[in-house]
């Protein structure tokens, strides 16, 4: 695990941004070529630049279809980019980048494996030592409040619990970077609040770099050190907001004027870019 930083102030994070970006995107764009001869190509992402600092929690917010999931796929090397360059930790991304963890909107647990074995799939595929991995898996499951459920099958757990398992699986190999594609979007509002709170606490333990995609601007402001607001398709960056709210943030922070100012700003951006039609 990364070294615990004593004071997670925004100033330190800003310095790190300049010193050593964890993820660096330069002029990255994505065009889906039409398969038909005279069909028009679809531009999913306009060329964009983005630096994500080590230990930073970046949230990307935008409407569905704005290319935010595409952006995540590009960073993970799961889909080739059309122009520009991406590197993570100084290494260029070409093909699937494996030194990271991914959490999707669906938990994607394997129904025939127990909870513990679902977390351990990460170790099996990577060929890690099973005994060490099992110990770490148990530790992670305990951290998310799931000790005692190791031998259960996924269908015996609720949606929120399953998504916690998916997070444990993504972190088993202790990756420096965690990518999350609307991980809480399929959950009900109460479970979602709980997981958001729990995940913040969880993240503060080791402060690894997180890129978190959401279409929920409250969630984006609540979790992010920075919020990247996307424009509608073809996706680009409308604005980047630095969220200067002390951590740990509790649910009540959502009712403060400071918090409202951020969400108001994002809301205005959505209206400016035509995502929301003004009243």
């Amino acid at each position: 695990m990364d070294v615990l930083r004593p004071s997670p102030s925004g100033v330190v994070a800003a310095e790190i941004t300049i010193a050593e970006p964890m993820v660096r995107l330069r002029g990255v764009s994505k065009v889906y070529r039409s398969l038909r001869r005279n069909g028009t190509d679809v531009e999913a992402l306009r060329p964009l630049d983005l630096n994500i600092a080590r230990g930073e929690f970046v949230t990307i917010v935008g409407p569905s279809g704005c290319g935010k999931s595409t952006l995540l796929s590009l960073i993970a090397g799961l889909s080739p980019y059309t122009t520009g360059e991406i590197d993570i930790g100084g290494r260029p991304v070409a093909g699937p980048y494996t030194d990271l963890g991914i959490v999707f909107q669906k938990d994607l647990l394997l129904s025939w494996r127990t909870i513990l074995d679902n977390v351990l799939i990460q170790a099996e595929v990577r060929g890690l030592d099973r005994r060490k991995a099992a110990a770490r898996a148990a530790e992670l499951l305990a951290l998310v409040g799931l000790s005692g459920f190791e031998q259960f099958l996924p269908h015996e757990l609720s949606g929120g619990m399953r998504q916690r398992v998916a997070i444990c699986r993504a972190l088993l190999h202790n990756p420096p970077l965690l990518l999350m594609d609307e991980p809480f979007a399929a959950l009900d509002a109460i479970t979602r609040d709980q997981l958001t709170l729990d995940f913040q606490r969880f993240w503060q333990r080791d402060r690894r770099t997180v890129v978190f995609i959401t279409h929920n601007l409250v969630e984006a402001v609540f979790l992010g050190d920075r919020v990247i607001v996307m424009t509608p398709r073809p996706g680009g960056i409308a604005e980047i907001l630095d969220i200067d709210l002390a951590r740990p943030r509790n649910l009540a922070v959502r009712d403060t004027p400071d918090f409202a100012r951020y969400t108001r700003r994002i809301h205005d951006l959505f209206i400016e870019t035509g995502i929301i039609k003004a009243e």
């Binding site: 799961l78 999707f104 669906k106 595929v125």
Partner: peptide, 11 residues
């Protein structure tokens, strides 16, 4: 997405 997940594990 399941296949993507496996790819990202280097499978």
């Amino acid at each position: 997405d399941m296949v993507k997940l496996f790819k990202s594990m280097g499978a």
